[in-house]
Design a protein around this nucleic acid. Structure first.
Lengths: 161, 161
DNA sequence: GGCAAATCGTAACATTTGATACTATTTTCG
DNA sequence: CGAAAATAGTATCAAATGTTACGATTTGCC
């Protein structure tokens, strides 16, 4: 990704010659996927190993911690989960007493999800660890790097939407 | 991730109060996972929709394009795939005539994977699109931003290893 | 008002992915 | 040398995930 680092590097090691080469180790999409997976794994230690939540459940919990009560259909857009993932995550959380559900009286197709008090307690317990993890990750960067990384991520994301 | 953007923002919208809050939309691990998924999807258009390869098969092909011949056991570390994923990806590629395999005479447990000529042709066909995609993604960034992004990714990755 | 189309959430099925254990071979070392 | 341990790759089974279609309800429109 450093400029043309992935451009024609012909004649290398018996590879396909006469055309462009692609070095996977330096290919930006690969590197990004790899990093995201590493980070995801590191964060999963918090919610998964310590609190037995799936990634999807954790995302839903994170949203509910901030909103406390939410219509099921709003969860998807906020968590980047499709409606089936949301359905399963919420069912999982309900089975463990972390959320409860009621039907919206104004539209009985919809269900409202709320944190139980156990859910609120769990949220309060997890969040410090999650924030600590985030801070720990970013600690290797300078404030300047964080700022640019933030901007770059926004721009990349916007460029894809 | 911008400094303490995820720190205590108590009293917001009926949420859990008296403790720290975590805004998922600004939580770095979430944002990174989201971006990586977007990018992955964009790149998958190239190898998946146009050439019917899975992500794992594409990674193996990308390695073989540069090496042309490789021991199966070397593929995993180079592609971040576990040995089962490698096994399945290689089988898939072999079934489609993209690679062929022989047993290593020096150690008959090992198998050597090589690109067939059809595989080389496929590689040459895909690579330009893949590089074009990468360039397209990065085009929204300035050279300076690319440089810092590159550095930040390296540092984050190293910090996790 | 009433019927067609849309929406919400989930069930049911298919496919993908992950975990475990097995076969074949090679290496280690008593 | 030869038995025990290690290694490469894969089969097999279990779990997670994606897809399709459905039941219940609401909305739009004639």
């Amino acid at each position: 990704m450093t400029g043309r680092s992935n451009q024609a590097r012909s004649g290398a090691a018996g590879a396909v010659d006469g055309g462009a080469g692609l070095d996977l180790q330096h290919y930006f999409p690969y590197r990004l996927a790899r990093l995201a997976e590493q980070v995801s794994l590191a964060v999963a230690e918090v919610y998964s190993e310590r609190f037995a939540l799936t990634r999807q459940e954790w995302r839903v919990l994170a949203i509910l911690g901030a909103r406390s009560e939410i219509a099921t259909k709003e969860i998807g857009p906020l968590t980047t989960l499709d409606k089936m993932q949301v359905s399963r995550a919420v069912q999982g959380l309900e089975a463990r007493g972390i959320v409860s559900r009621t039907y919206d009286p104004a539209d009985r197709r919809e269900r409202i999800v709320s944190l139980t008090s156990a859910g609120r307690a769990l949220y309060r317990k997890i969040v410090p660890y999650a924030l600590e993890r985030e801070a720990g990750l970013l600690a290797v960067l300078t404030p300047e790097e964080i700022k640019i990384l933030d901007r770059a991520m926004r721009k990349l994301s916007a460029g894809l939407a």
